[in-house]
Amino acid sequence: MIHLQNIRKVFNAGRPNEFVAIEGVTLAIDSQGATALKGPSGSGKTTLLSILGCMARPTAGRITLQEREITSLPERFLTEIRRETFGFIFQQFNLIKGITALENVMLPAYPNGENYVSLKKRAMELLDLLNIGGKATSKVEWLSGGEAQRTAIARALINNPAIIIADEPTAHLDTRLSAEFMEIMRQLKQEGKTILIASHDPIVYESDVIDRIVEMRDGRIVSSGDVP
């Protein structure tokens, strides 16, 4: 599905504070499976995730997504691909405060120009599916941790993406909520979604949901293998 070839990403190139975030990464992510990116903070997990998720362009190397070369695609087109292919779940969920859970879920679909009414209906269905339909009209700052988590997942699913990307999703969750999160990931995997999670939380990478673990250190992949 996604192929990375010899990817390198440099920040502040040519300046004294030049910093190589990832170097020589070659990786293939297959469709329909769950992959965990494991490694300490600063190991380049997040940078790799953002390149995989078409958020950032590598300084060098090649990326193909579903047989299409997307390496030097400008932001205008990368965004479209990102919107249609990926759903993102962030650390701390990053919901927008002051608006309702429903609106938060609908936001990523606004640029598609979908009719407001049908979009609202779809968003409601997703919230119902995740058992928080009752909280749809509450402002997000009044949601509990578990409800916020579900809202964030619903938002990631609104554009019906093939791939779900989660960056340290359990970093601020207690054990019960972390386990619940992995349960939802399991369901999504069963529905045929590809799951990509960056985490250094054992609850994530030791979970039986995960099929494959890619371990990173200092911007390079140190090991990559299927979970037995």
Binding site: V10, F11, N12, A13, R57, P58, T59, A60, T71, S72, P74, E75
Partner: peptide, 13 residues
């Protein structure tokens, strides 16, 4: 356009 350098990204912006 082939380059992923920061200068090119800046120009695209």
């Amino acid at each position: 356009i082939r380059s992923g350098s920061e200068r090119q990204l800046g120009l695209e912006r």
